[in-house]
């Protein structure tokens, strides 16, 4: 039965996925088992994305399905299943850049892969990243930037973290025009070309 749910999610059958979730609940399947099936489905989609079989529409639609299913499950779950988190990450689009689509996908994939994500939104000044890292105790920061004007704010954010004494915090960057040149320029520890790369980097640091 759970396989039916996995197939519906990976087959991008949004309505079926929600209907099957309700059927599973009605037949007495524990919400936590349904969540595990969702995670399994997302792993399949993530792998397809990595291998170039799935693309942004599939990640987004999967995100929509996860959100709808979790809305159904939450009221039924006595308490949030205590899952072990891999680590804390602060994520945001850097100052001066208001683009959120790629950053949202990265946040979603990190969350799904077991990280506790603090998403600071867009146009985030360096000081706000520093403050969030201090508050959450995160050891990883993800900086997003779509425009070329994001290069300097990324560099400033990396510098601000260092000068605040947060030298053991690892920083990864990503965005349309980000490459190894910009990683070196900003002083970041790594760059990722897409959301799955961000997950792989974060896992290697966790």
């Amino acid at each position: 039965m759970s396989q039916k749910l996995i197939d519906a999610i990976t087959g991008m059958r949004e309505e079926d996925a929600l209907a099957i979730t309700n059927e599973l609940l009605d037949s007495g399947v524990a919400p936590v088992d349904i969540l595990n099936a969702c995670k399994e489905a997302m792993e399949v989609i993530g792998k397809r994305f990595e291998s170039g079989e799935s693309f942004i529409p599939e990640l987004m639609l999967a995100g929509e399905m996860m959100s709808a299913i979790s809305d159904v499950l939450k009221p039924r779950m006595a308490e949030e299943a205590a899952t072990e988190k891999l680590g804390k990450i602060v994520v945001g689009t850097v100052q001066g850049d208001i683009h959120d689509i790629a950053k949202d996908i990265v946040s979603f994939m990190l969350d799904l892969n077991g990280f506790e994500v603090t998403d600071l939104g867009v146009d985030v000044p360096p000081a706000k990243f520093v403050e969030a890292v201090k508050q959450t105790g995160a050891r990883i920061v993800g900086l997003s930037g779509f425009l070329t004007l994001a290069f300097d704010p990324m560099k400033e954010t990396v510098a601000a973290l260092k000068s605040a004494g947060l030298t053991d915090v690892k920083v990864m960057i990503g965005g349309g025009q980000i490459d190894e040149n910009i990683r070196q320029y900003t002083g970041a520890d790594a760059y990722g070309k897409d959301a799955m790369a961000a997950v792989a980097i974060a896992k290697s640091w966790a």
């Binding site: 070329t148 290069f151 025009q177 980000i178 490459d179 040149n181 910009i182 070196q184 320029y185």
Partner: peptide
């Protein structure tokens, strides 16, 4: 020619 190269190269 990459923007990254114009900026950081």
């Amino acid at each position: 020619v990459p923007a990254s190269l114009m900026s950081a190269g």
